[in-house]
Structures are given as structure tokens and as C-alpha cells.
Write a protein that binds this DNA or RNA. Structure first.
Lengths: 186, 186
DNA sequence: CGTTTCGCTCAACAAGCGTAGAGTGAAAAG
DNA sequence: CTTTTCACTCTACGCTTGTTGAGCGAAACG
């Protein structure tokens, strides 16, 4: 036993990953302001100064922690699939990074900018599948509907949505969203 | 000129009101954590210590500032009226106190509790006008739809919703919400 | 008038924060 | 082996925060 010694680069990689995971978890749980470098360091079982050394500042750490992998954003399939795909992703197991961003989007300027960007992209994709001069506006309303449900479900944890399977949410929401697509889609 | 001297009680009343207004404005703008007693005091042109003397603590000041007047919550009219009433109130000129609560609801525990309470009441009222065993769930989804739109419009200030008159939002949203009421309502 | 009340300010405290720089000890390199 | 590198820690600085208690000065009161 114990010939599994870790190389230096390996140890560093793991520490950095632990810090990032702890950061995502704490940012997602309590938001940017209440999450402290010290708290993140303690959760990652690491000295606070190490966090600074690796990420430079709390702000940069947040940016890296919140970074959404482009793969996480749904592609541009057919709209209805798209909606359901979005529903499943948005309503179900959102990545910790997205939760972290959403948790802070109302109180932290950078998180707000990030949220506007992500939501803007989703609105673009949706509006691309729709027609009408107010397509963009309707696409925005669809996106905000999903945002509202996600906020209530994942962040406020309303009793009314506790333990409801995502398929049922999707089922109930579909006609409602369909009413916003306009008459022209599939 | 200048015989309009203010009585002591009058001065006190006005100071307290100025503090509360400044608090509401700051809480609504930057949220609980970033709003400081000093900032509120400066906005109210008052010494920070006075804020403490009148309200005891930052937390108590927040509670008083966020308090929603019962009159501000719409009564229990017919559902469709109710929806439009809610729409007009929720989408249009929300009172500063509601914005303050919403701004902090994702990051400040007390604000979250307050939000759950207000949303719960609205869900109750809505569900009261609906039938079906999942009426409460559908009512919750309607409420969260409105929440999402309000967040995007008033707090994130998405470009897509900038300057859109509330009647148009109500018009676009109505069929969508109607799809959630179920087949039984008016 | 003198005395009391009280709205209000000044100055300061302790705690917690993000952050910086010097140092340590073991792994890597020669 | 010696030397260098580098992941990591210790200690501390400066700042802001919420909060406190003593004090001032004008209004209220007799």
C-alpha cells in the first residue's frame, strides 16, 4: 500500500479543482457577498492565501466559478424540442455554476451582466425560430417564464414546487409557452 | 416669511420618513448587503447613529422598509380581472418596498422568507379560483411566470423589455397564463 | 426665567473582510 | 549529493462594516 504518491502538478490540479468546487457551492448557496474567501478556503481545506494566489481576487474567482461551459447551453434544434430540452436542463439539474450565477444576479453587478448575456443568447436562439415583429419580445417572455420557475424552484425552494418531477413541470408549462411562440411554429 | 417653524415631533416624523425612503431606495437598488447604514444615512442627510437609534439594527430597518401595505396586495376579484390587476401592479409601478424585497430575496434569508410569504399568499388567492388537484401547482407556476417577467423587467432591466408598455406585456402574457388556469375558469 | 426633555451628532470600538509578502519544506532537477 | 523550484502556509495590514455611549443644543415645559 501507499506507492500512489501524487506528483506536484497533480496535487496542484486537485487543489485548484477543490477550491473551484467549494467556490461554486458557496456562491450558489449564499451568493457573492456572503461567500467569503475564508469560507471557501475552509470548505476546500486550504489556506485562504492560496485562493488568492491561484485566482488573483475574489472577483476573478467568481468569474471562473460561474463560467458556463458552451456545451451546457442547448443547441439550436427544433423549437419544441428546444423548449423541452431547455425545460429539462433549466428545471432539472442545473449545473452548480449556473445556480451560482443566478443566486447573485440581482445583487452583484458582474453576475447581472453575466445573466443578461446568457439570457440574451437564449432569447436570440428562441427568436430565431419564431416570426413576427414582436418575436424577440415573446421569446424574452418565454425565457423569463423559465427563469421565474427556476428561481422559485431552485433558489427560493417554494413548498409548492418541492418534489415535483420535472416532467410534470414541463407538461404543465408547455401549453403556456406554446401560447407565446405565436401561430407559425411547427 | 419664516414663521413656519417645525415642531419637535414633526421634525422627528420627517426624519424617520426620510430615512425609510432612503433605505427603500438603496435596498431596492443594490440589495441588502451592499446597502450600508452609512449610505442610507447620507442619502437621508442624517447621521448614521440616528438610523440605529430609530430602528435598532440594519435588519429591523430592512424589515420596516420592506413591509408591504396590505392595500398593495390585490384583493380576490374574479380571476381574469385578478390576473390583469396583478399584471398591472406587478408589471408596472411596483412600490419601492416590493422591489427592495425582490432585489434581496435570493441572497438575504429574511428577504427570502418574506418573498415566500408574499408569493404563497398570491398562490393561495389564485388557487382559490381554480379547480383540479394540481390547482395549487398551476397557480404557483402562474405566479412564478409573473415573478420571472418582473425580475427581467424591473431588476435585470433586459433590453428586450425596455420601454415596452405594460398593456402589451399583459396582452402577450394573458393567453400564456390562461393556459395554466385550467379549463374551468370563467 | 430655569429646568427638563430629546432629536441629533461625534468619536470610537470590535469584528470581519479582501489582500499582500515573507517564509517553509518537500518535490524536482542537475 | 546540491541546488532550484514551487505548492502551500503564517502573519499581518488597511479598510469598511454595524453598532455604541457620551455629549450638545435647541425646543418644551413649569
Amino acid at each position: 500500500m501507499g506507492e500512489n504518491v501524487l506528483t506536484r502538478a497533480e496535487r496542484r490540479r486537485r487543489s485548484e479543482a477543490r477550491i473551484l468546487d467549494a467556490a461554486r457551492a458557496l456562491f450558489a448557496e449564499v451568493g457573492y457577498e456572503r461567500a467569503t474567501i475564508r469560507g471557501i478556503a475552509k470548505a476546500a481545506e486550504v489556506d485562504p492565501a492560496l485562493v488568492m494566489q491561484y485566482f488573483g481576487s475574489k472577483q476573478e474567482l467568481f468569474q471562473q466559478a460561474v463560467q458556463v461551459s458552451p456545451a451546457a447551453e442547448p443547441g439550436a434544434e427544433e423549437l419544441v424540442e428546444h423548449l423541452l430540452g431547455t425545460l429539462n436542463v433549466k428545471l432539472g439539474e442545473l449545473p452548480q455554476s449556473s445556480l451560482a450565477m443566478m443566486r447573485s444576479m440581482l445583487t452583484h453587478p458582474e453576475a447581472a451582466a453575466s445573466a443578461r448575456e446568457v439570457l440574451g443568447r437564449q432569447i436570440d436562439r428562441l427568436a430565431g425560430s419564431m416570426t413576427g415583429d414582436d418575436a424577440r419580445l415573446r421569446a424574452a417572455l418565454m425565457t423569463l417564464t423559465l427563469l421565474g420557475v427556476t428561481v422559485g424552484h431552485q433558489l427560493l425552494e417554494l413548498d409548492e414546487l418541492r418534489g415535483v418531477p420535472q416532467e410534470e413541470l414541463a407538461r404543465l408549462l408547455r401549453p403556456s409557452l406554446r401560447a407565446l411562440t405565436g401561430p407559425d411554429v411547427s
